Computed example of a mutant assay.
Amino acid sequence: MLFSPGGAVFKLADSLRSIKDQCPLLTLIIRAKKNCVGYFQAETPYGKRPVGRPAKYGEKVKLLELFDQSDLFLKVRCSVYGKIEDISITSLDLLWKPTGSLIRFVLAVTSRGPIVLMCSDLNQNPITAIELYCARVRIETMFDMLKNLMGVFRYRFWTKRLARHSRKPVKNRNLKKPARTDIETIKRCHRAYERFVMTGAIALGLLQLISLKFEQSIWSYYAGFLRTKSRDLPSERTVKSVMEVLLSRDLISFAPGAVMRKIIQGCCNKKAVFEEVDSLPELEEPGI
């Protein structure tokens, strides 16, 4: 995640716990700021207890200064942004003042320089934490494709039984609850949101699968212009542009029923496109 971590985020992650397994259901892994500090737990004094509230925070630790102590780090092999390399890594659990609780800090030195991660789970494997953080690029790329290519977040499902709220609501003020008789209708509306998004995610997966299995065929069908190919494997956008033309050709080959005529008039009203794709060969299976 790219934003600065806050104590409220970690408290929320810690509140979602499994009663059966007694473990958190959500693990938060965030990159720490350069000036982030932690604290050891205060030592319990022996003998007579001093007057006043007992100390909670002990010695202060500036995390970036720990990189100067090479004896704390171990050499391991790890996948960093898709490449296997040798890194130096260590971890320690320290108190963090915004949460008032222990946070697992993972420190690593990779080919890209030193990095400090904060984990809400005290049992998190340090190597796994680094690999999960590096995998965030794939997640961000997937959301970019879902939003800008597939349009899965442009749903327009609505019901008048949903309570109206301000676009800039004030926290914990003027909250409106739906009537009990409207709850089932609102649940169906929410399920429609989820199904629309999941259908788009499945369609994106199919584009990726077609790109892997029909790489040469997709490039032979592609009628666009690319100044320079960034890779041999066609992107999801390239596959989509090819499949749109192929599916349009198949669409007009159906029997011209009333429903099909409406679809063709609304979506496929350009005859030039179909005349162009009629001359294209059939999509063939890749050789083994």
Rank of each mutant, 00 (worst) to 15 (best):
M145I: 09
V137M: 13
L162Q: 04
T199A: 15
K168S: 12
I115M: 10
L117Q: 07
E194Q: 13
R136N: 09
I186F: 06
F157D: 01
R173T: 09
R195H: 12
P169S: 07
T159E: 01
S120A: 13
M142G: 09
L117A: 03
K171P: 00
K171N: 05
G151R: 11
K176Q: 14
T181E: 14
K176M: 10
L162N: 01
H190A: 10
P114R: 04
G205Y: 07
I139W: 12
G200I: 05
R173M: 11
R164Q: 12
G113K: 06
D121Y: 04
L207V: 04
R161I: 00
R188C: 10
T159P: 00
F157S: 02
E131P: 01
R180C: 10
K171Y: 13
L122R: 09
N172C: 05
R191C: 07
L132Q: 15
K177A: 12
R167W: 07
N174A: 10
L175R: 13
R188A: 13
W158C: 14
M150W: 03
E140C: 08
V137L: 14
N125H: 12
D121H: 07
A201E: 04
N174T: 05
D144C: 08
E131H: 03
F153K: 03
F153H: 04
I202D: 03
I130P: 00
N125C: 15
R136Q: 13
I127M: 09
Y133E: 02
F157R: 02
L204F: 15
A192L: 14
E194N: 09
G205T: 04
N125S: 14
V170Y: 03
R138S: 13
E131C: 03
I202A: 06
T159H: 02
T128K: 15
R136E: 09
R173D: 02
I127R: 14
R136S: 08
F157W: 11
